[in-house]
């Protein structure tokens, strides 16, 4: 592994672990300095980060970040919101209808999505998956959704009109826009 590969690997890992940008830049600079110093005395990048770069990066990120319980609840909330938006939008698009039904399975699917996304290092795992695991996911995901909606597809709890979905998306879109503007200002 070269110095640049190690840095890229760590950057990716820290980004997916949601290490704040300022911390990420600081850690990358510190690691780059160390790798360069080590190379000057003839040491390989492996002598610095060990054989398992992911474990090294995860350890460091955990030590720097240490998310509290409030951060976990916030993440659960964000994922549940994103899942609900996706489900409503998909309902309108797939059915090509102005009113999409909400059934018990909708709540279960959103809760499942929020839990899985919040408690698993999903991006890291998915991005490094071999092809057969990708294919497995592509097959298993629709099957789980189909089963879920076959079991929990009745009774219809409510019908959400298109403007209701738009209204539901609005706070998230505003928050994302504000965050993007703040980031640009920084």
């Amino acid at each position: 592994m070269t110095k640049d590969q190690v840095l890229d690997h760590c950057r990716t890992e820290w980004m997916f672990q949601e290490v704040p940008e300022a911390d990420l830049a600081d850690m990358l600079t510190e690691l780059r300095d160390h790798l360069e110093d080590a190379a000057r005395v003839g040491k390989s990048p492996e002598a610095v980060v060990g054989e398992d770069v992911t474990a090294f990066a995860t350890d460091w990120a955990t030590a720097r970040r240490a998310p509290g319980r409030s951060a976990l609840f916030r993440r659960l909330g964000e994922h549940a919101y994103a899942g609900a938006v996706a489900l409503l939008a998909a309902g309108h698009l797939v059915g090509w209808t102005a009113r999409t039904p909400v059934v018990p399975a909708s709540f279960v699917a959103v809760a499942l999505f929020a839990v899985v996304m919040s408690f698993t290092p999903y991006w890291r795992a998915v991005l490094r998956w071999p092809l057969w695991q990708w294919m497995g996911l592509c097959f298993a995901f629709p099957v789980v959704l189909l089963l879920l909606f076959l079991v929990g597809g009745r009774p219809m709890l409510l019908q959400v009109p298109l403007w209701g979905t738009a209204l539901f998306v609005l706070p998230g879109a505003l928050a994302a826009a504000v965050s993007a503007v703040r980031k640009r200002k920084r």
Binding site: L31, A38, A47, G50, F56
Partner: peptide, 16 residues
């Protein structure tokens, strides 16, 4: 140290 970088998580904890 076999993996020199293992000091960084520890330094981060000590700083925290």
């Amino acid at each position: 140290l076999v993996s020199e970088g293992s000091i960084y998580p520890l330094l981060a904890r000590l700083e925290k």
